[in-house]
Nucleic acid binder design. Structure first.
Length: 775
DNA sequence: AGAAATATACTTTTT
DNA sequence: GTATATTTCT
């Protein structure tokens, strides 16, 4: 059944024995346990190239699933550089893109039409908001967020309304209500001819299970299925893979199935599982060998990315997670520089450190695009951006508040959706009175009830404006809009003079008066909005240039499925800022991991979740292992969040790194000073995790007294809560020198002094913990 | 209907 | 502090 072909080919050059085995093994199932930086992409691409080169598979028989579109195109490029044009017929895409592709082809099999549109989470939330309001479900404690996450969880478990209702407790009014919400939501989605993100996977599984002849087509077609980041697959994705790797059911009666199940290769690392909150089930990878009996397992532990110091830190952090197979990353390339640590006084101070170090790296010849700054939450970008702008460091925030979430962009997109998928009432309602054309809620209701009474869609009801008994002005507005949509639709379908998406959007934006309304507005923000809309026009042009054959629906699909990491441009010449989640799968010469504080990393929200702190530790591990040469860990003693300032403690994970790996430019020791005893002293032994903590009970070996973790050890800590300060006082700060107090605000532990320093400028200081004294 | 003013939550990570 | 929801006013 299985064999390992012994050959020597360029595809094997420079691979270590384990990598070679992973490339060469042939059999029904292969699990590659790939530690961070162990060359798994290389292994995957060489494996694919090997299959193509030896003619074991045609390109069209290969399905490779990656986590992001960027990873997909990278993989395609690398296979192409190995085998040339043969790479072109393969399916290399994300789970979601692959499912869209299948669903578009098969939609008509089960009551959808192939021009369905995709609801992003914002669309889902908007729909749920309306449903919850209509049902007055908020009195039972339902919010959009709770309903959305519950529905998402259910869909990821492949539950639908009926199966949920079967198990529901009808004596519980909340469960009855939720069933109704879920039912309304599903009904609205299907009547809008739309899928949400979770549907894309779940409905594909449903399609395969309900229509074995459809499933058989794909089971026969795909002979080799490869899945990257397998540790982050959820149950629905797992089920999809299971369906695809079943032996195709032979339709001809009485014949043996002559087609073997597809061969499955999965790559993953349970230590990098960071999407449990999204339904990822680590058991998928842990129990792979049980799921696929006879599976071969190959372990890749040699690391080709990072220095040994970085790897040692990563190993020692992750070893604190119990319930994992022991795995140690190692490199043959030497220790490298020490990890640099810094404790800022505030988030701004921390950002300043990052900016200064980036300039230092730059002076030594490192390019900006080789540097990345990571953080746990998106809101942490603000301080970084402010300082970066002031320091003239070019940067790009990857992901975050996205372009496509802006209202003006959603409006423009809604026009396109209304043309591509007239059944999508949500989009229709959005543009109905955008720009203002005198169609208010009352008119909207009239149209909706007319549509319902006559069994037509909302869109078609617009064609009967004259029969709604409305005023002449409103009737005229509706007519105009309806005609504009028809014209745009004809243009999109027939593409006169080679026109495409940009022309359709241009027509809609100009004839609807939307763009003019923005330009004519006296709200200064509308100028920026108009620019954003023009930016979207530019995006469509770019799209059409890259995809001359692409139609409106293709454009909409692509936009719906972009991942945060997709818009990362390697040649941009700027520093990349992103969340730790977005950073997965990427690598940089130098990495700054910021905000390494309790309540941030691990995030306070994770404390209650079972397995939360362990998942946060994996997140920290992922961040550390992105770095090739230099790693910087930073935190702040105080962090400003929405208005007020709170005291921050160093993350528990910091002490899990051996002390001799970190060189503190400014340690948390003098920074963590708090009043009273310390229930969570920095190097206190913690329940369950005895492991390695970085600070020995005695004196740290760091030379400067400033960098000692002194307070945690000696118990001497600063507590200035008794310090009286008023405007006009002179003070001395250990870092900033002498200065004058300009103002004191706040009360008790929150007292803040605004100080004009003679040498260091104006700072706001939290008096309780500031290293200051009156002079 | 629409704009302006005031109140009110909400802050984890994302395909 | 921000974005959104609700209100009040024109």
């Amino acid at each position: 059944m299985s064999s390992t072909v012994e050959t020597s080919s360029p595809l094997l050059d420079g691979l270590n024995p384990q990598q070679r085995e992973a490339v060469l093994y042939r059999g029904p199932a292969l699990l590659i346990v790939a530690g961070a930086g162990s060359g798994k992409t290389r292994v995957l691409t060489h494996r694919i190239a090997g299959l193509l080169e030896s003619r074991e598979a045609w390109p069209s028989q290969i399905l490779a699933i990656t986590f992001t579109n960027k990873a997909a195109s990278e993989m395609r490029d690398r296979v192409r550089s190995l085998v040339g044009q043969a790479a072109d017929g393969m399916w290399i895409s994300t789970f979601h893109s692959a499912c869209v592709r299948i669903l578009r082809r098969e939609a008509e099999q089960f009551g959808y039409s192939k021009n369905f549109t995709i609801y992003d989470s914002g669309d889902s939330r908007a729909l749920l908001k309306r449903i919850i309001k209509e049902r007055e479900a908020d009195v039972l404690g339902f919010t959009v967020a709770t309903a959305a996450s519950k529905i998402s969880k259910l869909k990821n478990e492949l539950a639908d309304v009926e199966s949920y209702a079967r198990g529901a407790n009808f004596n519980d009014p909340a469960e009855v209500m939720f069933t109704q919400i879920f039912r309304d939501y599903s009904r609205e989605l299907s009547s809008a001819n739309a899928f949400d993100f979770d549907d894309l996977i779940a409905q594909t599984v449903y399609l395969f299970r309900a229509f074995p002849h459809v499933a058989a087509e794909y089971q026969k077609r795909f002979r080799h299925i490869l899945v990257d980041e397998y540790q982050d697959t959820n149950h629905a994705q797992y089920a999809l893979i299971r369906e695809l790797t079943k032996a195709p059911e032979e339709v001809d009666v009485g014949l043996f199935s002559s087609v073997e199940p597809a061969s499955l290769t999965v790559v993953g690392d349970s230590d990098q599982s960071i999407y449990a909150f999204r339904g990822a089930d680590i058991r998928n990878i842990v129990e792979f060998e049980r799921d696929f009996p006879g599976a071969r397992v190959v372990l890749l532990e040699q690391n080709y990315r990072s220095t040994q110091n970085i790897l040692s830190a990563a190993n020692s952090v992750i070893s604190n997670n119990f319930d994992r197979k022991d795995k140690k990353l190692w490199t043959a390339d030497g220790d490298g520089d020490k990890i640099v640590g810094y404790t800022g006084y505030t988030g701004h101070d921390e950002a300043q450190f990052v900016a200064d170090e980036i300039q230092g790296l730059r002076d030594k010849g490192m390019a900006y695009h080789d540097i990345a700054v990571f953080y746990r939450t998106n809101s942490q970008t603000r301080a970084l951006e402010e300082i970066f702008i002031r320091s003239a460091i070019p940067y790009k925030v990857v992901g975050g508040t996205k372009f496509y979430e802006r209202a003006e962009i959603k409006d423009s997109m809604a026009y396109l959706i209304a043309v591509a998928n007239p059944a999508d009432t949500l989009a229709m309602r959005r543009i109905l009175n955008t720009p203002k054309r005198g169609i208010g809620p009352a008119t909207e209701t009239t149209i909706a009830s007319f549509a319902e009474a006559n069994g037509m869609t909302f869109r078609d009801a617009l064609r009967y404006a004259g029969e709604l008994g409305l005023g002449p002005k409103v009737t005229r507005s509706i007519d105009d809009l309806s005609q504009l949509l028809d014209e745009a639709s004809v243009m999109a379908d027939t593409r006169p003079d080679g026109s495409g998406v940009p022309e359709v959007l241009g027509l809609l934006l100009s004839r609807s008066g939307y763009l003019d309304a923005l330009r004519a507005s006296r709200d200064p923000q509308d100028e920026a909005r108009a620019e954003n809309v023009e930016e979207l026009l530019a995006v469509t042009k770019e799209y059409q240039r890259n995809n001359p054959e692409g139609v409106l629906l293709d454009f909409l699909t692509e936009v719906s499925l972009v991942a945060a990491a997709d818009d990362l441009d390697d040649s941009s010449g700027s520093v990349s800022l992103m969340t730790l989640h977005t950073a997965k799968g990427l690598e940089f010469e130098a990495v700054f991991l910021t905000g390494v504080e309790e309540d941030l990393l691990p995030h306070r929200m994770s404390a209650g979740e079972p397995g939360g702190p362990a998942e946060e530790r994996r997140l920290f591990y992922v961040g550390i292992t992105r770095a090739r040469k230099r790693l910087f860990l930073s935190l702040a003693m105080t962090r400003a969040q929405y208005g007020d300032v709170s005291v921050a403690l160093p993350s528990r994970y910091l002490q899990e790194i051996p002390a001799d790996l970190i060189e503190w430019k400014q340690s948390p020791g003098m920074a963590t000073s708090r009043g009273g005893t310390q229930p969570r002293a920095l190097n206190a032994r913690r329940d369950g995790y005895g492991g390695s903590y970085s600070v020995p009970g005695g004196r740290p070996t760091t030379p400067k007294p400033k960098t000692e973790w002194a307070n945690a050890v000696t118990g001497q800590m600063r507590d200035n809560s008794a310090l009286e300060l008023a405007a006009g006082d002179r003070i001395k700060h250990t870092d900033f020198g002498d200065g004058s107090v300009m103002a004191v605000t706040g009360e008790g532990a929150r007292r803040i002094a605004e100080v004009q320093f003679d040498g260091a400028g104006r700072k706001r200081l939290l008096i309780k913990v500031a290293p200051i004294e009156k002079i």
